[in-house]
Amino acid sequence: MTAMIQLSNVSKWYGSFQVLTDCTTQVAKGEVVVVCGPSGSGKSTLIKCVNALEPFQKGTVLVDGISVGDPKTDLPKLRSRVGMVFQHFELFPHLSITENLAIAQMKVLGRSRDEAHERGLKYLDRVGLKAQAAKFPGQLSGGQQQRVAIARALSMDPIAMLFDEPTSALDPEMINEVLDVMTGLAHEGMTMMCVTHEMGFARRVADRVIFMDQGHIVEDCTKEEFFGAPRGERAQQFLSKILQH
């Protein structure tokens, strides 16, 4: 298996405070990896290092063989090939749903307006929101906004998708509509790295689970191992807390 995302000994400091320590892992093509851990463990920071939204001081990150930290790398081009979904959706509130889906296709990939709109609508239909195309983000529910955000990322034809706590800001009844879209993607063979607390999702679709604590990757194993076989004390504590509900 070839690694689509490869992190080697990634370390990062905010001033003198070390947020990531020697993080090494990889996501193979078509693999779904869930990253979990207590808040402040560095999981969001780690996933943002993959597309260089967060700079890191040590180690290397390769995406499809291209080094993210190399100053010679064309970062905008690399980022345009990696989809990202954020905790707070981050749809552009001044643009309609159609424009949200089309803007980067047109301005970054150079697609024509017609092509961008057509492709955007295709993915909007896929997440079940074709009827909302003319609305603005503020008129949609949180769950709908997050599905639009996924469609926006998909319409760029990404080689991998990063999810940074995509359901943490959602009301409980909206979590499943987003997870269903993500599950569908996983089954289609999309390469995915997901920071999430949704252990049910991890159990259903993850190939591997990474557990982080205080900036370290302390567990990195298949989901069968993570949810079944013995593992580190810290991960057990975390799981026992999170699986109660």
Binding site: N51, R81, V108
Partner: peptide
């Protein structure tokens, strides 16, 4: 987050 979303889509 808006800035990050723009960058994540490949904008300069």
């Amino acid at each position: 987050g808006q800035v990050n979303a723009g960058y994540a889509l490949g904008m300069r």
